[in-house]
Structure formats: structure tokens, C-alpha cells
Amino acid sequence: GGFGGGIGDVFGGLFNRGGAGTTRTQPRRGQDIESEVTLSFTEAIEGATVPLRMSSQQPCKACSGTGDKNGTPRVCPTCVGTGQVARGSGGGFSLTDPCPDCKGRGLIAEHPCGECKGSGRAKSSRTMQVRIPAGVTDGQRIRLRGKGAPGERGGPAGDLYVMVHVDTHPVFGRKDDNLTVTVPVTFAEAALGGEVRVPTLGGPPVTLKLPPGTPNGRTMRARGKGAFRKDGTRGDLLVTVEVSVPKDVTGNARDALEAYREATAGEDPRAELFQAAKGA
């Protein structure tokens, strides 16, 4: 966790030190917390609310965060309650560091609390319901402001950082904001064309028109069926065609293929390959 504030706090602490009314302790920002979550592929695309169990330093319940078992800590005489001490940096300027005696709290316990040993902080565990936005990617680090450890003396809470891990899907893949899927088609569909039903993630299938002479590996696009973007729109579903070759061909199907081979005997699909190899 940090100590909050900016350059104004630094110079304010220097120029106000030692005068009347300067012994009030400063608010202290809570610690940042890091956690991890594993989502299914669908949860990452559509968003999900997940429970996260986290451990952090929070105000000690035994002493109400004062660090003193009687609840009456005194102002640190070293930093006069500011939690910071000045150090020279040359050039006529001074910078500040956390006070080494009170560890930046501004308070010292005369009678240290037995639970927190005078620190005013104790380890605490809690479970939070965290909303993971739609469209997150594997390895993405999400920052949730104000969801970290509570601050001290009215200081703001820290932030929660969540590292997201996404499981793979047996059918769909992802490329940026687009989803990907490989769809097998028959030789007849690729050669003659036709309509092919394609599954979508979490929605009804879509039908794509396969033009005659579609080569193996061609990619077509189903618009608006991909992952969510930050602006709420969706990417596309990229559909790659894979010509399926049957393992066994018998009966009329075999006769038809034999007839097709005879009808196309004069065609050599590898002619251009060898021509290009000679030219190189």
C-alpha cells in the first residue's frame, strides 16, 4: 500500500511542522491487494461475477485500529503525528520518508495491543463478489479501484488487482476480438457450393453460403458473433473450412469418384508447382 497524496503533502508536511495544531495524524491509504481467478472460455467472453477470497491487513478489531490496548495511543514525537520525516536531497530541497519510529502511522502505542503488537493492523480474510467484464483475455490484469484493504484514519481504500486466467474451449478459439472455429465440409460442398450451418458461442447456429470451388482452409466471416469489445460491440466469428476426406469409400460413392477421376484425368493440380520450382 502507498501513503497517498502528492507533492502538496510533501511540502505541506515540511512547512507546517512544529507549529500549533500540527499534531493531527494524517489519513493513510489502504494496501493494494492482488488476486487471481480462472474463468471458463464462455465466462471470459460474456463476463461473470465470481467470488474471491482475499487476505489483507485491516484495522485490528481488538484495539479498533489504534494499536493501543486501552485505545489511547499518543502522537509520535519524532514525526509530530504526520507519519513522515524529512531528509535532505541537496539543492535546498527536502523530501520525506515514512517515520521509522511509528512506521508511518503517526501514532505510538504506550500499551501495545496483544493482537496486533501495536501496529493497529491485523490480517483478515474476506470473500468478495467481483464482476469480471465481458471480453477479458487470458493473462489480463484488471484493476478495481477502492476494492483493496481499507485505509486508516479516514484514508481511501487501496485497489484490487485481479489476474485473469481463461480455460480453452473444445470448439472455439480466439484471435483479438474475434472468435475462431474450424468447420468440416464434404468434397461435394466445397466443389459445388452449398449452405453450411455453423455453431456460435452461446447462441443459435448461423448459416453461411459456401461458393462453388471453395478451397480447403478458406476463412469466412460471421459478423457480430465474436467477443465483446470495450464499447459493447462484438467482433466476428472467423470460420475456417476444412474439407473432410472419408476413410472408406464404397458402393455408388466409389463408382462416382472413379468416374470423376477418369473425367478429370487430363488435369494436373501440381503443374504450376513444378513450373514455379524450375523458375526458382
Rank of each mutant, 00 (worst) to 15 (best):
E195C: 03
G139E: 14
D101V: 15
E189R: 05
A259E: 15
Q26A: 14
E258Y: 02
C99T: 04
D268Y: 00
R221F: 02
C60A: 13
A227S: 12
H169R: 08
P112W: 03
E272F: 08
R74G: 14
L39N: 03
V198Y: 03
Q31K: 00
T127Q: 11
S40A: 00
V206E: 03
V206Y: 00
G1Y: 05
R53G: 15
R254C: 12
T66R: 04
G81V: 13
L257K: 05
F41A: 02
G114E: 15
G47R: 04
P246I: 12
S124R: 02
G21P: 10
R270G: 12
G139Y: 08
V130S: 10
V162M: 01
P170L: 07
T82Q: 09
A157E: 02
A48H: 06
A222V: 03
K61H: 13
Q129A: 14
C76G: 11
R17V: 08
H111F: 10
L14H: 04
V85H: 01
R126T: 14
Q31M: 00
A62L: 07
T207F: 03
N70D: 15
I45V: 08
Q26N: 13
A263H: 02
A271H: 09
G65W: 04
T219D: 14
P27T: 02
R229I: 05
F274S: 13
E267T: 06
R254M: 14
R126C: 08
F93W: 01
R29W: 13
T186H: 07
G155F: 04
R197C: 04
L208C: 02
T25W: 00
A271L: 15
K175I: 15
L210V: 13
G235A: 08
A191Q: 14
G19R: 09
Q31I: 01
G2C: 07
R223Y: 08
V37K: 04
T38H: 04
G266Q: 09
A259L: 06
V75M: 04
R153W: 09
G6W: 11
M128F: 07
Y260W: 15
G90S: 07
F3E: 10
L95Q: 14
V80A: 10
E115N: 14
V37F: 09
P77L: 07
L95I: 09
R197H: 09
R131S: 15
A190L: 06
G12L: 03
